[in-house]
Amino acid sequence: MTIPILYEDGEALVIDKPAGLPIERPRAGGRSLEDHLEDLKLGFQRPPMPVHRLDTDTSGCLLLARNPKALKRFNKAFEDRQVEKVYLGVLAGTVADDEGEIALSLSKISSKDAGWRMIAAKKGKPSLTHWRKLDEKDGTTLIEFRPETGRTHQIRIHALAGLGASLLGDPIYGTGKGAPHTMLHASGLIVHREGKTPIEASAPLPADFARLGFAIPDAAGV
């Protein structure tokens, strides 16, 4: 597998992570992004390091730092909300409104039978996502999500609890049916840097979205 590179400079790479590729090696073994980091050195002495996380099923823009100092700066940029992220997701349902925002407090729960998941809970951590409807096809809806916070599974639980429908193919917050995996794609990323031009990348829409009849409108970029 060749990992597409969307952006490259002396301190950063943005790759187009394929759906189904975990960032860290699974406990049960198998392939992961770690298998590709040596190839992504691209002449540098150190392999690049992931700055943030994407779920295994989620495709698209993933920022890698090419040295420890850059990793520290990029981590701070995420903490200080100096990062703009755009996701595209397919809802297993329709929504009446054209746009809005979802503000929920999220908490993690777990059980022996179902494993762990996030829920909306008053005592959880605050989360905020802006969204707008882009298209509808056969009872499904293409939504653009712009999260301001970066909670675990934020968009997946916001789709269910905020919009009333899970993402298509989501096995945790939905039925897992209708798609080969959770239909969520990190389509755009901007990381602002003091004294330097921002890191800016866009990832093309994956074939799984196109097979559902969806395309990225011109206005859906970062």
Rank of each mutant, 00 (worst) to 15 (best):
L37A: 11
W116F: 05
E38N: 11
A159N: 03
A103C: 05
C61F: 12
D97W: 00
A207N: 12
C61T: 15
Q154R: 02
F74I: 03
V191P: 13
L212V: 07
F78H: 08
K125A: 12
L37C: 08
A201N: 05
R31D: 15
K41F: 00
A161Q: 05
L42K: 11
P180S: 12
R66Y: 02
K17Q: 08
S107C: 05
A186Y: 07
G174K: 04
L205K: 02
L21T: 03
K108Y: 01
P26F: 07
S187C: 14
S110Y: 03
E101Y: 10
E136K: 04
T175K: 07
D113V: 12
G30Q: 14
P126T: 02
G43E: 13
M118D: 03
E38L: 13
T94L: 02
G169Q: 14
L167H: 12
D135T: 02
V51C: 15
A70I: 01
P217T: 06
D208T: 13
L64H: 08
E136Q: 09
G195A: 08
Q45N: 09
R73V: 00
G29N: 11
R73T: 06
L91S: 00
G213D: 06
L142A: 10
Y87L: 07
L37Y: 03
Q82V: 05
G221K: 10
V14M: 14
V90N: 10
A165I: 01
P68A: 05
A121K: 01
G60Y: 12
H153W: 08
D57S: 15
E101N: 14
A159G: 04
P171H: 08
S202M: 12
V14D: 06
F78L: 13
G115R: 09
E24I: 07
G178I: 12
G30P: 14
G139V: 00
F78S: 11
A161E: 02
Q82M: 14
P171K: 05
P47G: 10
G20V: 15
R132Q: 06
F145S: 07
Q82R: 11
I102Q: 09
A201I: 15
F44H: 09
P18A: 06
A203H: 12
G169V: 11
H158A: 01
